[in-house]
Write a protein that binds this DNA or RNA. Structure first.
Length: 156
DNA sequence: GCCAACGTTGGC
DNA sequence: GCCAACGTTGGC
């Protein structure tokens, strides 16, 4: 299988790229996703070694701030079974998990964050899902061509 | 803080 | 199965 690419969103107040960089093994569980389409990506599609663009949302200047990679493929997200967790799902059981997560590892931080307004100026990225109106997915697919463009305009 | 866009829920 | 109501996301 050829390498695939993804983009994950995070609010920097909850877990920023800097947090990932500081984490043990520079790796974290990408959990708490409670959207079926994103779940399907996590469970079925994201493969070891896939590239992941790291995006900061809900901030003054939303931007792609760096890159990571998938280091563990989809497995059940424990937080769905934890009654004390915000992500608890009473309908999920360990036999029939509903929500999944992957592990991602830090790769690099861009010297300059690629803001939404900057990305919109790049014609090759016009079709990028991130830039489409009303998009709220927290995990989305990125084409190889889009990945290449992003890596070309980024410096790190 | 506002509001458009979207997903989910629940009454019927 | 439809669709209105509601909650959440996220850019601005």
């Amino acid at each position: 299988m050829t390498q695939q690419y993804w983009l994950v969103k995070s609010e920097p107040e909850s877990f920023s790229l800097a947090d990932l960089k500081k984490a043990p093994q520079q790796t974290t569980y990408w959990d708490g996703v409670r959207n079926y389409q994103a779940r399907n990506y996590l469970r079925d599609s994201m493969k070891l070694g896939d590239g992941v663009l790291y995006y900061h949302s809900n901030t003054e200047a939303p931007a792609i701030v760096g890159a990571a990679k998938v280091v563990r493929e989809g497995y059940p997200d424990d937080t769905q079974f934890d009654a004390k967790s915000n992500y608890f799902d009473a309908d999920a059981t360990p036999d029939k998990p509903r929500w999944y997560r992957v592990d991602i590892q830090y790769m690099c931080e861009f010297k300059t964050p690629l803001t939404l307004s900057y990305l919109r100026e790049i014609p090759e990225l016009a079709g990028m899902q991130l830039l489409k109106k009303g998009n709220r997915l927290s995990v989305m697919a990125v084409s190889a061509a889009e990945w290449d463009v992003v890596m070309r305009v980024a410096s790190f």
